[in-house]
Simulated assay, not measured.
Amino acid sequence: MTTTTAKEITMPSATPATPVSRKVISEKARTVCGSLALLLVFLAAWQWGPGLLGMPEYILPNFMQVVRESVVMWNNSQLLMHFGVTAMEVVFGFLFGALLGLAVGVALGLSPRAEAMLSPYILALQIAPKVAFAPLFVMWLGYTIYPKIIVAVLIVFFPIMINVLSAIRTVDPDMVNLVRTLNAGRWQIFHLVELRSALPALFSGLRIASTLSVIGVTVGELVGGNQGLGYLLVDGEGQGNTAAVFVAIVALTLIGVVTYGAVVWVERKVLHYIPKVNTTTV
């Protein structure tokens, strides 16, 4: 019977970082530092640029004036409540538009006859300016959140539908035939081949739609709203308060950035099996 001494027992040591991983970390660090440097340059130009150019504050307020105005609006104009209303409208408009675009894109992709019949009407709906529909929705549904959500749905729908339709139509037929030889049913072919092949294109459309949803909601709030950041935009314009307008614009941008970042995060979780060289960039 053999005995094992303490010297013979070796604990697993942490794997040292490889040169490749260190290089990746270094590149990411340089990218982050470069982005932060550009942000600081932009903020510095915003703070001191208007004064150096001799612009009055009612034309282009500097950065600190916008920050002070945001504090005033937080305390007196219920900025957080309006921010929450717009964010909720953006999320619902984005989700409903994405689901509708996915469903219609899949249906048209699987049925060429349905695409030939419906594509002229879908194209006409896309060509029609969405701003023209916003007053109608307000007249029909009143000053509620529903007109803003519907406008966002109309704007979000088309890019997702087109991306999914194109992806379904370009599925590799050899892969479909291979799955059929394994006695796969129609649902299995769709789930295992067609839907998975369409996921990269779907997320590309979702990235675009995440920014367009903010535009749709803002249009609805500008046309007829008594709540939301679009309403604050109109209110600031009516008062000649340029700083308040900038506060609303920055808040809308923040909502768009967060929505886009959420889509990118979900995409990386879902499409983690695809090599990075084949995935879309941020």
Rank of each mutant, 00 (worst) to 15 (best):
D174A: 10
G84Q: 09
F92M: 09
T279N: 10
V153H: 01
M81W: 08
N241S: 08
W46M: 11
A6H: 12
L102N: 00
V245Y: 00
Q47D: 01
I168P: 01
G256P: 03
L80R: 12
A128C: 04
Q188N: 07
K148P: 12
T18D: 00
L110W: 02
V179N: 08
W187K: 15
P200V: 06
K7R: 15
N183E: 03
G216K: 13
V138E: 01
V104N: 04
K269F: 07
V176T: 12
L95C: 08
L254S: 10
V138I: 14
Y143W: 09
W140S: 11
F157R: 08
V176D: 05
A167L: 05
L202S: 04
L118F: 13
S166H: 10
S166R: 12
Y58C: 02
A14I: 11
I274N: 02
D172H: 12
A128M: 04
V264M: 02
L154S: 07
K7L: 14
V24T: 13
P61M: 01
W187D: 05
D172I: 09
E194V: 15
A243R: 05
D174I: 11
W48L: 06
V176K: 15
G105T: 09
P147K: 08
I145W: 01
I149T: 08
W46H: 07
M1Y: 10
N278K: 14
V104I: 15
A128Y: 08
F92Y: 10
L222Y: 12
G105W: 03
T259E: 01
S35Y: 11
G261H: 08
L212T: 14
I9R: 14
V171G: 06
L79E: 00
V258W: 00
S13N: 10
H272S: 13
